[in-house]
């Protein structure tokens, strides 16, 4: 009892890993990451943003299902997306 504080969920392995990983990330960002790695990560995030945007646009503007077409009908016509 005396060895382990009552509020430490030491049996939750994930938490330890998570804590460890967070610390590692922080340390590496502060000290060891080369500028090229930061840039690469920025590029990946920008690409991910563009892809997410295009996926949403495809869904609203071009999804062929009747339900999607009917819900977004007036929007599709207004943006002059090919419709019908």
């Amino acid at each position: 009892m005396g060895l382990i504080p009552a509020n430490t969920n030491f049996y939750r392995a994930g938490e330890h890993v998570e804590e460890y990983m967070t610390m590692t990330t922080v340390t590496s960002k502060a000290n060891t990451t080369a500028p090229s790695q930061v840039l690469a990560s920025t590029n990946v995030q920008i690409a991910a943003a563009a892809i997410l945007g295009m996926v949403v646009l495809m869904g609203v503007g071009f999804a062929p299902m009747d339900v999607a077409h009917n819900a977004a009908h007036d929007t599709r016509h207004s943006f002059a997306f090919p419709c019908h």
């Binding site: 563009a50 945007g53 949403v56 646009l57 609203v60 503007g61 007036d74 207004s78």
Partner: peptide, 16 residues
């Protein structure tokens, strides 16, 4: 809703 979603898609592409 469709307008806002489309605007979101365009904004993401524009930001990128």
């Amino acid at each position: 809703l469709s307008n806002v979603l489309s605007a979101f898609g365009f904004a993401m592409v524009l930001l990128a």
